[in-house]
Amino acid sequence: MSTGIRTSRALEPVLWFAGLLLIWQILVRAFEVPIFVLPAPTDFLADLIEERHRLALHGLITTKLILYGFIAGALPGVVLGYLIAKFRLAEQILYPIVVFIQGLPKITLAPLMLVWFGFADTPKVILTGLITFFPVLVDSVAGFKSIDPRQYYLSKSVGASWWQTFRLFELPSAAPQIFSGLRITIVIAVTVVIVVEWLNSQNGLGYLVLRAMDGTNTPFLFAILFVASLIGVVLSFGVAFLERLLLPWRRI
């Protein structure tokens, strides 16, 4: 009984989505919209199936860059967030730099990155990292600052070392807030990587987008967007899953 309800709940959005595609299909056909303006679902779904190997190959390349860039931004975000929250000196030195970098439209650094790091993956990862870094930093600072100061009475009285204090008290306390930053950031990372791939690439979904645009192949463009959003959804769920796994107390 309850599993039946659960299945129907999971099915509901799928049905809505299917219904939407059906209406889309009918409208495009009824008004005879040119295919290069707006393809009917059957057009791009056909492309999706036909080009599945190419889409998977380039999708995986993009996914890899998203994950690398995400980690390259999130890890320093948490570490610097901790330093800024904990040490006044770090706050005084780092915050102005961080705010300046945040003010900078980072995508304009792309040419510079190419000069510095060549045409491989490195500049893409660094750019993605620069953009994903800030939201994680902000949430990490907030998370580490929100720790009840009396918790330090406890950690001191049990004789916790610096590392134990960080690992057993501070990190778990700040983790929920850090994860709220990660959840936002992973979606941003998808966009950033695809845009960065426009600038210089021989592969990845961004590269495919350019190829599709060159040929005014709008159905293929839609197929790429479908894959890109699928990647975004899967990665978001991945972060949410990680949060459930690592922070079991949040579920109660």
Binding site: D148, R150, Q151, Y153, L154, K156, S157, V158, G159, A160, Q164, L168, F169, P172, S173, A175, L247, W249
Partner: peptide, 30 residues
Amino acid sequence: PISDVGIVFQDHLLLDFRTALKNVMLQQEI
């Protein structure tokens, strides 16, 4: 800070990310 001590703080000060037992076993762990 002396560590050969047990302190019961006002408002208990348990870590909400640890189970009751793991809160107690924090002493052992550290």
